[in-house]
């Protein structure tokens, strides 16, 4: 389980995340939502140890992340940031094989390659696996990076705005995969996401942040609510029920 205890971070004296405490439920999809500058990505980066926190603790399975050995932690938790520009010219398969680094330290064995193949198949990239990343479209690229995370085979998967710059079709595709990861493989998925309707349709729990603090957290139905959303976004967002999904109609 991931447990966040009173974590804070400030830049140039300006607090970005302030004493946030949080427990993430196992085997579910949890979304962080909130307006720009709410501290969602910062919080995610701190949970994943990409960013140093000013104070507070992040516990994974009861152990502080700073006490974990980096290699062990990399078998437990993985993070994918929103911009994934890399300077190398790699094929999809080569990229995905990097996901096995925590297990193999660079020398991949047969079972590592099997995992790589599985991850590629899972993301439907088998036909593209020998293509170079710079030959792929944005959506395919994103899928390749997610395949790498899947090959890493961690219990916790953190993604920072995985839908950034994707069209509707690819967004839905990615969200379905994340859903399956939780349901079929029992992973715990945490995402930062802007679109409240994607959050509503695909997540089990939602954590709403504003000004560096958690405004409200709970099951999706409790958060996708006119009153709650108004408080978070300072605008009136009527909720409609469409095919059993709660959709916020905020366009007008």
């Amino acid at each position: 389980m991931i447990e966040v205890q009173e974590v804070s971070k400030s830049y140039a004296g300006k607090p970005v995340v302030e004493k946030v405490s949080l427990k993430i439920r196992q085997g579910s999809v949890t979304s962080f939502i909130g307006p720009n500058g709410a501290g969602k990505s910062t919080l995610l980066a701190m949970i994943s140890r990409l960013l140093q926190k000013d104070s507070g603790k992040v516990l994974i399975d009861g152990k502080d992340i700073s006490d974990w050995k980096s290699t062990e932690l990399a078998k437990k938790i993985s993070i994918l940031k929103q911009s994934n520009q890399i300077n190398l010219r790699l094929t999809v398969r080569e990229l995905v094989s990097f996901g096995r680094f925590p297990y193999s330290q660079g020398k991949l064995k047969k079972e590592d390659w099997e995992k790589v193949d599985e991850a590629i198949a899972y993301m439907d990239l088998t036909d593209l696996q020998h293509k170079y990343l710079d030959q792929l479209s944005g959506g395919q690229n994103q899928r390749a990076f997610i395949a790498m995370v899947i090959a890493q085979n961690t219990e916790y998967i953190l993604l920072d705005e995985p839908l950034n710059n994707l069209d509707m079709k690819h967004s839905v595709q990615i969200m379905k995969v994340l859903r399956r990861l939780a349901e079929e493989l029992g992973k715990t998925v945490i995402i930062v996401i802007h679109d409240i309707n994607f959050a509503s349709c695909y997540s089990d729990y939602i954590v709403a942040l504003k000004d560096g603090k958690i405004v409200k957290e709970g099951p999706t139905e409790a958060i996708i609510d006119n009153k709650v959303l108004e408080h978070i976004y300072d605008m009136d967002i009527p909720i409609e029920l469409v095919n059993g999904n709660r959709i916020g109609v905020y366009f007008k």
Partner: peptide, 20 residues
């Protein structure tokens, strides 16, 4: 030397892959 390949992916990926 075993870290070098993964390091070339950049800092964030390297940290994610468990490199100190």
């Amino acid at each position: 030397s075993k870290y070098l390949d993964a390091m070339s992916l950049g800092k964030e990926h390297a940290v994610n892959l468990g490199i100190p």
